[in-house]
Design a binder for these strands. Structure first.
Length: 862
RNA sequence: GCCGGUGUGGUGAAAUGGCAGACACAACGGACUUAAAAUCCGUUGGCGCGAAAGCGCCGUGCGGGUUCGAGUCCCGCCACCGGUACCA
């Protein structure tokens, strides 16, 4: 037995995250004030940082974990920078999976959901995320929260922003329920693959988001802190297009001729077009298969009826196959005609499968010469193609379809011939309006938000239907309308709540007579549309939140989440913000100044997901490598906005790095103590004496301060945490390389103390458990999170000698060393003095010398 | 089709228009060990020359351009990933 090495081994501090992490987790859990935001009057600048709240599915996924690691690292940094930080967490706790779980194993949705929340909260605590649980945690399925959904709904109803109308909805015949658009996958139910979703006409509640369409769209231009991608997606989703509506009269049926047609019996077709300037080129009118007139005509026209049915069936099939965009254009003539109000031409009316019923008016004028789709259609069916726009009046040969409008003029367009396209659009629309057959119109792709769901696990819509009084809102003082908890979830159709008599039967709030409650619940996107306001005042029992608190914290300084919410959640919550502003509750018009969308986590080349079976469990990672290594790897492996390939070897690498840091730092603890003792004795801030420090010590200090500067800069700007961590690794490598010198006392205790101390501070946002442990082991009893972030000392960070690459004609020849503050002439001289340079330029003429101070020299020779 | 994004070693990736491949992972070689693990040290873009120190050439998806100088900027392509899809 040779005891010497073993002795040393035993003496070296071993990094044991399995001991350190639970110890600190317990301490942090026991101190609710640790992550609580300070008072508003504290004189500190505020920083409101949120990661999108998760759905409590039961397991924290490594993809979530990455998002939270990004937010947590930033929040910790901002704490240390002296900001008043609000960093909340909550649960998007309503939704269909809870009902599915109930169906599958009989667990009541509430129980299932709260159980999942508890499990995930534990996972998050294990990761060491700095959430103010006590002050902010919310679960949207609790009455304390959802009563305010109901309250907002009533406010919107009062203002005409919530209304009820009959509308088409997605209906799964197997679930016997309405589905949200996002639950329709390739035309089928997400739970019943292969079961086509039907369109059913139902009475539904809608929120009038279209009232804010222009503001939602225009606001995007003034949001530089949001990714361009998200803004573009929202612009497309809102889909504003300016054009004109033009009314075409339908020519009466021959059989009707001779008899007097009364004005109210006349039929009209309104078409929407963005190119009214091309109207002289219209050669047919095309209606959507679902258009009201088609339905009417089909009643007496069996051939038409069959054709329309076929079209609708075919569209369904195409949707099922997922290739709705590539479906072949098909149409059938209705045998009827419409009159072009501009020139009196008689145009055949067709029904065509490429006309969308729910966009514009569900009808178009077909201008084959100037629209690619109309062109394709006209060619297929031999409809005339009439050119009415050209680059100029003399154009003979022109490839069709010709769709340019910016530099085109009208031809063969009667009195409008010669007009520029863009101007004609405006003039012709006004002409139509003056003559009563049209109007300038703006159309949006965005539709009002249908919020009714025939489901159980959601917020009850606070409305009552009374035979005598009609729709009666539940009075505010009767909120919340509680969701009954004892309910059997079955496969039966219709709203589950409609089968709970105690819930349904209610006295009319107005007249007191027996009435029925609304049994639909709200879309869960309502819950997440305003939750971040609730965080600012989460325990308020009298209001959704206190305006003063919301106004202090809003807008959110940094919102972090997945790009998959770019449209739905992020439009709904912008809408909600504007409504709340108009209700006088808040002062801001947009919820978040900056939005960050992190990349996906990839495993084996595919997005990590349960269905692909390539899930990595954070718990397993924590058990093997610790939470610090797990979260640090998630930040190190790629910049946060990029997709991240999860490689376990990488986590192992980080954990080795942390072990090295731990061992080194623990070893220097003695030096730190010595330093502190001396400092106390001298009453000064430190004993470092730079002038007397060894070269090794000075180099170490230089690297240290360079690292501080780099990380501080990256936190404030680009968020490239991967290079921040790399910088810390470089620093640790430098320390490691000087371990022997430190052991030999060649570097002063003051320097060793400063380096160790600062290293811990730098690690604090990335590896909070280990940093806290080391901080304590160094003899500090202060809270690491409350320590000020280190300041980079520019003087110490400065290099005295720099290496300047020398190029000849742009090609690297050598590197020369010069003083960091050398002037151009000195650098130039050093370059010319170099042998290799001399050899390279021998016999040639130097025509130009470029000196970039501190960077390089380039000699241009001939 | 349209809108984003990405293309750099065996892999993840670095690089305000200024030494391409930092920092890691993996691999290989070595030290320690009876052995292994752990740890530490070293090598690692390609090709060529050299006994070696070293030296030369090529190299950031492809083709052009701007510049003293391009992974980076401009023009035109290609591939992959994501979103969207007949929006009149």
């Amino acid at each position: 037995m040779n005891s010497m090495p073993e002795f040393e081994n035993n003496n070296a501090a071993r990094y044991t995250p399995s001991e350190i992490e639970p110890k600190w987790q317990a301490r942090w859990d026991a101190d609710p004030a640790l992550y609580a935001a300070g008072p508003h009057s504290a004189g500190k600048p505020k920083f409101y940082c949120i990661e999108m709240l998760p759905y409590p599915s039961g397991v924290l996924h490594i993809g979530h974990m990455r998002t939270y690691a990004v937010g947590d690292t930033l929040a910790r940094f901002m704490w240390m920078r002296g900001y008043n930080v609000l960093h909340p967490m909550g649960w998007d706790a309503f939704g269909l999976p809870a009902e599915n779980a109930a169906l599958k194993n009989g667990t009541p949705p509430r129980e299932w959901t709260l159980g999942n929340i508890a499990a995930m909260r534990t996972q998050m605590r294990r990761m060491g995320f700095s959430y103010d649980w006590a002050g902010t945690e919310i679960a949207t399925c609790l009455p304390e929260y959802y009563r305010w959904n109901q309250w907002f709904f009533l406010k919107m109803y009062e203002r005409g922003l919530a209304y009820r109308k009959s509308s088409k909805v997605n209906w799964c015949p197997k679930c016997a329920t309405v589905l949200a658009n996002e639950q329709v996958v390739d035309g089928c139910c997400w739970r019943h693959e292969g079961t086509l979703v039907e369109q059913r006409e139902l009475e539904q509640w809608f929120l009038r988001i279209t009232k804010y369409a222009d503001e939602l769209l225009d606001g995007l231009d003034a949001m530089p802190g949001w990714p361009e991608k998200v803004r573009t997606m929202q612009r497309n989703w809102i889909g504003r297009s300016e054009g004109a509506r033009v009314t075409f009269d339908v020519v009466p049926e021959p059989k009707e001729q001779g008899t007097e047609i009364r004005e109210q019996e006349r039929q009209h077709i309104a078409v929407f077009t963005t190119r009214v300037d091309t109207i002289f080129g219209a050669t047919s009118v095309q209606l959507a298969p679902e258009h009201a007139l088609i339905k009417q005509w089909a009643q007496t026209d069996a051939v038409l009826a069959r054709a329309v049915d076929e079209m609708i069936a075919q569209q369904k099939a195409a949707r099922e196959a997922g290739d709705i965009g590539t479906i072949e254009k098909k149409g059938v003539s209705t045998g009827r005609y419409a009159i072009n109000p501009f020139n009196g031409e008689r145009l055949p009316i067709w029904v065509a499968n490429y006309i969308l019923a729910d966009y514009g008016t569900g009808a178009i004028m077909s201008v084959p010469a100037h629209d690619a789709r109309d062109f394709e259609f006209a060619q297929k069916y031999g409809l005339p193609i009439k050119r009415v726009v050209a680059p100029n009046l003399d154009t003979d040969d022109l490839e069709l379809p010709y769709t340019d409008e910016a530099e085109s003029v009208l031809v063969d367009s009667g009195e409008w011939t010669g007009e520029a396209s863009l101007e004609a659009q405006d003039k012709m629309a006004r002409f139509a309006e003056e003559h009563g057959f049209g109007k300038k119109t703006t159309t949006y792709r965005l539709k009002d938000w249908g919020v009714s769901r025939q489901r159980y696990w959601g917020t009850p819509i606070p409305m009552v239907y009374c035979k005598a009084c009609g729709i009666v809102p539940v009075p505010e003082d009767q909120l919340p309308v509680l969701l009954p908890e004892k309910i059997e979830i079955t496969q039966e159709g219709g709203s589950p709540l409609s089968r709970v008599p105690e819930f349904v039967n209610v006295a009319c709030p107005k007249c007191g007579e027996p009435a029925r409650r609304e049994t639909d619940t709200m879309d869960t996107f309502v819950d997440s549309s305003w939750y971040f306001y609730r965080y600012t005042d989460a325990r308020n029992a009298h209001a959704a939140f206190d305006s003063a608190k919301a106004n202090y914290w809003f807008p959110i300084d940094q919102y972090i989440g997945g790009v998959e919410h770019a449209i739905l959640h992020l439009i709904y919550s912008r809408f909600w913000t504007k409504v709340m502003r108009d209700l006088g509750l808040i002062a801001n018009s947009e919820p978040a100044t900056r939005l960050f969308t992190q990349g996906m986590v990839i495993k084996d080349g595919a997005k990590m997901s349960t269905s692909k079976g390539n899930i990595v469990s954070p718990d397993l990672m924590i058990a093997k490598y610790g939470a610090d290594a797990t979260r640090m790897y998630a930040l190190f492996a790629a910049p946060p906005d990029r997709d991240l390939e999860w490689q376990e070897e990488g986590v192992a690498g980080i954990s080795r790095f942390l072990a090295r840091v731990y061992r080194l730092t623990m070893k220097f603890a003695a030096a730190v103590e010595e330093e502190q003792t001396t400092a106390n004795a001298e009453g000064a801030e430190g004993t470092r004496k730079n002038a007397e420090e060894s070269d090794a010590g000075r180099t170490l200090l230089r690297v240290l301060h360079q690292t501080v500067a780099k990380i501080t800069e990256d936190f404030n700007g680009r968020w490239h945490f991967n290079t921040c961590i790399a910088a810390i690794m470089i620093l640790v490598n430098e320390i490691s390389a000087r371990e022997a010198a430190i052991d030999a006392g060649e570097i002063s205790a003051g320097t060793v103390a400063e380096v160790s101390r600062t290293l811990i501070l730098l690690l604090a946002p990335f590896a909070p458990f280990m940093a806290a442990e080391l901080w304590e082991q160094m003899g500090n009893d202060s809270v690491l999170l409350r320590q000020p972030w280190p300041e980079a000392d520019a003087e110490l960070a400065r290099e005295s000698v720099v290496e300047i690459p020398v190029q000849v004609n742009g090609k690297l020849v050598t590197v020369v060393k010069v003083a960091a503050d050398a002037d151009d002439e000195t650098i130039k001289a050093a370059a010319f003095a170099d042998e290799k340079v001399a050899a390279r330029i021998a016999g040639k003429t130097v025509v130009k010398t470029i000196v970039v101070k501190g960077k390089l020299v380039n000699l241009v020779v001939k």
